[in-house]
Design a protein around this nucleic acid. Structure first.
Lengths: 183, 183
DNA sequence: TTGCTTTTTCGACAGTGTGTCAATAAAATA
DNA sequence: TATTTTATTGACACACTGTCGAAAAAGCAA
């Protein structure tokens, strides 16, 4: 859309302020259910109606924030995957470090359905790509990608929310230990 | 509390109607964020203020519903664990069948923080008990209980919400495949 | 820089939801 | 049945939502 028409700088500024307001509120309150349009507009020092000019509702705004974060996240981990890195551990740690850096915002966003789905698909696609590269044969003895992706998502969500005392390296170790040798 | 004082039958009746209203609303709408005190009271054919006489807010009511479900769930799986069942697979399937039976209500309750924590602890305790029975030695090579519990929770949440086309047996197979042999 | 145009910003409104009261009504039980 | 206990109720003040038309301000061309 911005390809066909230059966006008004005022709109850009307002959107940025609204997004910043969300980040500001989230990192200090840490509960998505308490987020209201009223509070966001107040924090952004904009009229509440201005919000509705740019976004349909709170979910719409969150959806766009999520989209941007995922673009960023995908860009960061894709090179690592493409580079047929033979060091899985390192790739995993890099990925986890990214999550850890933004853990406060991620912890909140994980309560957002769309965000969780995006993360699930990212994990699933990543696993599938790696399997293709390694030409894994699908037999009855191979664990399905859904199962691996959902278990990984579970671990990440727990870590981000309740296990931040553990380092990315420890989590990566545990994950490969579990997936390589079983329990 | 009901040990020291018999509860007024009127209160019991009201609470039951409010809980039924929640179940009724949840199973047809399937979104916890749209649940309001107003709707619950209306569905229960009670005045809204009656709700506040019994519960602090919606979360309080959900917390109590969750508590009751977990009492029920724990009672059902505990005998299986105590009976030093040598058939892990069977135990797991029984547990998953319970979740599947109430999948609609569980899918909604998983959006409730307290519920997720309860489930996590249930899984964690179960794993710890089993490890004690088997006298597992904790070395660097053993995956931590947190990691296993959170990955299990992830799989269960995915299954209940987006993978209900798969049978309990299949999920149980996949879980033991993953945890026994790795990926 | 000016003056016209586009677009944003704003205050206000109706509608829905929350949480609490004092007054009322109705069950429980002695 | 009478009395006490307790639940139920409508009404109140307040917060949040989503949408106007009018006003203000920024953008942009000459």
């Amino acid at each position: 859309m911005s390809i066909y028409k230059k966006e008004d700088p005022r709109a850009i500024r307002s959107k940025k302020m609204l997004k910043n307001a969300v980040f500001s509120l989230i990192t200090e309150k840490l509960d998505i259910s308490q987020l209201t349009v009223q509070k966001i507009a107040e924090r952004a020092e904009l009229n509440r109606a201005t919000f509705y000019l740019h976004y349909e509702d709170i979910n719409d705004l969150l959806r766009q924030i999520v989209h941007e974060i995922f673009d960023d996240l995908s860009m960061k981990i894709d090179p690592l995957l493409q580079g047929k890195s033979n060091n899985e551990q390192e790739t995993l740690v890099t990925f986890l470090n990214y999550l850890y850096e933004y853990r406060k915002i991620f912890a909140v966003l994980f309560e957002h359905k769309g965000f969780k789905n995006n993360m699930f698909n990212l994990l699933k696609n990543t696993i599938e790509k790696r399997r293709n590269v390694r030409k894994i044969q699908y037999t009855r003895e191979v664990v399905s990608v859904d199962i691996i992706a959902s278990s990984l998502l579970g671990i990440i969500m727990w870590w981000i929310k309740d296990g931040t005392q553990f380092s990315s390296e420890y989590i990566a170790d545990q994950i490969s230990l579990m997936y390589k040798k079983g329990i």
